[in-house]
């Protein structure tokens, strides 16, 4: 299950809880990635929409993939507004040995960026502006575009 929260993530609580959850699972490596909103281009923050049914399917596929490598993945993400210097995304891989988790966290986060059904907006003057130029079409996009 993906953990979804309204607003910024409580990073310390989530990382500590995940650590405790797996502290007796015999994983030698716990590799988290924390995504934090940077102060740039005058934005007040970011805002997110999430389509949960497809996000859960995407994550389930990753959980199966991780399992075949003896690993597990965990993920938390924000819905709605997250302000500068707050965090909106945490992913983590636990694996018996470090190499699997180091490689998988990279692959997981990149695949997340390219395919997870989440939409990002810049917050400016209290308005949400779709971050079109930073967004990636999901593989297979354009199916309905017709003849043109």
């Amino acid at each position: 299950m993906v953990e979804l929260y309204d607003g910024a993530l409580d990073v310390e609580e989530i990382l500590a809880r995940w650590y405790k959850e797996e502290s007796r699972s015999n994983y030698g490596a716990y590799i988290p990635f924390v995504g934090t909103v940077r102060d740039e281009d005058g934005i007040e923050g970011l805002s997110f929409d999430i389509y949960e049914p497809i996000l859960e399917k995407w994550f389930d596929e990753w959980q199966k993939k991780a399992k075949t490598a003896g690993a597990i993945v965990k993920m938390a993400h924000s819905r709605g507004d997250v302000f500068v210097h707050e965090s909106s995304y945490i992913a983590a891989v636990f694996s018996p040995k470090r190499r699997v988790a180091l490689d998988m966290i990279d692959e997981f986060v990149e695949d997340f960026k390219a395919g997870a059904p989440i939409w990002k907006y810049d917050l400016r003057d209290g308005e949400r502006i779709y971050a079109a130029e930073r967004s990636t079409p999901i593989t297979g996009s354009g199916l309905l575009k017709g003849e043109s």
Partner: peptide, 23 residues
């Protein structure tokens, strides 16, 4: 889905997903 020939039935839900950017 990846085909325009995908059959649809009464009650089906078709969703359009624009470019994404999580994180």
């Amino acid at each position: 889905v990846s085909s325009l020939e995908t059959p649809l039935c009464d009650g089906d839900k078709v969703s359009l997903l624009p470019p994404v950017c999580g994180g």
